[in-house]
Amino acid sequence: MSSDASSASSGDKSETSSVDIRGLSRTFDGRTVIDDLDLTIAKGEFVALLGHSGCGKSTLLRILAGLDDEISGEVIVPARRSAAFQSPRLMPWLRVWRNVVLGLPGRANRDRALATRYLAEVGIEERAGVWPKTLSGGEAQRVSLARALVREPELLLLDEPFGALDALTRVNAQRLVGELWQRHGCSILLVTHDVEEALLLADRVLVMDAGGIAHEVTVDLPRPRALGSPEFVSLRSRLLGWLGVHDASASETPLERISS
């Protein structure tokens, strides 16, 4: 992986930033999906990446994960990073706890106590001994998060991890990710197409279009954030506008709506 090799040579930048991308391009059979992209993610920063399907946001995440190295440009990422995807991708033939510690070096990959500790952190330690097929979608996604966290990553990559969850489960999972981020202090890149999710969780929201970062907004709202606050609503309609969606409530604040 080119990313690992280059990370050693640029120790100066890694003092403050977790991810440094310079002039990244990725082409699939002549079709440019990522075009000369620059991006820096600070240590401990929560960045959300919005965009339409096919805008290249998942490709960017896969490159950062080291799953795609047919790239040009410079990508520097922490060596310790892990990912959770839209489908939990658990090995169905391993018990839940074995899934969590699978791939850890040495004897740690049989350390049930370690697995249980992280399962407890995502709130499902009582499911440690069952087969993954018996988990609900939300539970499986929590296991997937525990599996990502057990590696104590400096960078956590989340590719629409709540996309397949029902609305109620999603709210809980989002809150959980927010808590885990504050406790672990890792950088997070969250790929999503849910504008509210991005605004609830992230320090900075990027909108990707035509293979590059088209728009960027810093979310300076105190946490926990309320969906209805005027700042939130105006940020949401701004982002929706960038995404090409006209927000019907854009012209009025929620208070006005109630009084009318």
């Binding site: 994960a65 080291g66 799953l67 995807f85 489908s87 033939w93 699978l102 791939g103 070096p105 590696r151």
Partner: peptide
């Protein structure tokens, strides 16, 4: 292929990949 990818992401080597993903 999604499981294979997840296993690579988890740092499984070739032997471990065969043992924990491919053969099962």
């Amino acid at each position: 292929s999604q499981l294979v990818e997840a296993a690579r992401m988890l740092g499984l080597g070739r032997i471990a990949l065969i043992r924990y993903v491919i053969l099962p």
